[in-house]
Amino acid sequence: MGKLTAFAAGLIFGLGLLLAGMANPAKVLGFLDLAGAWDPSLALVMAGAIAVALLPFTLARKRQQSLLGLPMQLPTKREIDRRLIGGSLLFGIGWGIAGICPGPAVAIFLTGHWQVLLFVAAMLIGMALFEALERRERAQ
């Protein structure tokens, strides 16, 4: 059952991204271009998503187990540190260069554009690099 709800959630997430316009890098860049002709659509994507997700997350925070009896695994870290801000800044710079973030990258992966294949390959290399650097740090 948990596998089924996970698949359904991923599918709905992807359809939402496509409908919202997030899957089109040109539209994302239109939102990030405050000084040009600004397309505010993506602010409404965020607003719509949070409006709907607020109640489920409020309920989830009060539970130890999910409705299917699986452990509730909400993030526990609270520190606002250099890693968080530095990493987020790097992510934002990359997001502004191509207009693609991880969700849409997966959602348009099978649409046959070479750009997204290259983007995902580079993104996975970046993630693997992170793992390698982390392991080296822990080994020291």
């Binding site: 059952m1 948990g2 709800t5 996970a6 359904a8 959630a9 991923g10 599918l11 709905i12 997430f13 359809l15 939402g16 991204l17 496509l18 409908l19 919202a20 316009g21 997030m22 659509s41 993506l42 409404l44 994507v45 965020m46 607003a47 719509g48 998503a49 949070i50 409006a51 709907v52 997700a53 607020l54 109640l55 489920p56 997350f57 309920l59 989830a60 187990q65 999910s66 409705l67 299917l68 699986l70 452990p71 509730m72 695994q73 909400l74």
Partner: peptide, 20 residues
């Protein structure tokens, strides 16, 4: 944008409530 966002929120809600 609002409708797509709502679907994204629904998916996140399902994943957290069903799968934690």
């Amino acid at each position: 944008a609002l409708a797509g966002g709502a679907l994204i929120g629904l998916a996140a809600g399902i994943f957290v409530l069903a799968n934690g």
